[in-house]
Amino acid sequence: MPRNIEIKVGIFIIISVLLIGASVGYVAYKKDAFSKVYTFTFMSKSGDGFSEGMPLVFAGFKIGTVDTMALSDKGTVLIKINIPERHIKWTRKSSIFILERPLIGQPRIVVYTDEMDSPVLSTDMAPEIFHVDSIDEAIHKVQPLLTKIDRILDNVVTISSKLSQKETLMEMAVGDKESVSSVNEFLQSIDTMGRRLDTILSKVDTVIARTDQGLYGSDGLVVLLRTVLTDIIGKLDRLNSVIDDIPTVTGQVVRSTGDLDNLRKDIDDTIHAVQELLKDIDKMIPMKKEREINVP
């Protein structure tokens, strides 16, 4: 056999093998086949919607894959997710993990990480994966609450306008400087509350655009909203006690006007509505531990 045939075959085989090997190696590198993969355990109340091979996504990029799922002794579902070493930085202790099942397209687990200073997730933690089935369902759930908020805001507006009309009448009728100053304080506080609401509102767009924006921290929006509502309820409570005192001071004169009775009713309604809303928010704040009654 001529020697040049052997050389040609040799060159062919070497080049082909090198090319194929390089291509396979490149794809394997892109698939993180060479990087160390860590397995994290996640917890979910239900295994519904999870499947093996499901992607874990951060900012639209796949950073991990569901490896296995198992039912724990406590009845929760343990989900093991493989994450290559170079992607671990995206999963922090403060990250929120949500199972998204869009109406169209593949379901996926989305990581929301806001605080990059928070410590990196370690393999011995088992954070919970929350379910967000569809926006429709969520809106359906929240509809009655929306009506409540609407009513509260209406009442606050009514009260403030009535109070601004009645201020002088009350001063005349009551003759009690302290009560009147309480009413005034309330009127002023409407302004302060307005400003605080504005601060919150400046964050509204961000919240709607990015669901991970500081919802749960001590300065989180849920806590802020709660504080504002508590403030409203506190002021209204004080106003209520002022109005309680009015009849004793003024006797029949004021009662006969009927106006203050109506005002009182408005305030009662508002207090009740705000209290109900506060209860709802209290129940929803995901800091269950903090709501536990414990010795100080």
């Binding site: 062919f12 085989i13 082909s16 093998v17 090319l19 194929i20 291509s23």
Partner: peptide
């Protein structure tokens, strides 16, 4: 080998 080249 040829399949590898074709794929590349």
């Amino acid at each position: 080998l040829l399949n590898g080249l074709f794929s590349i």
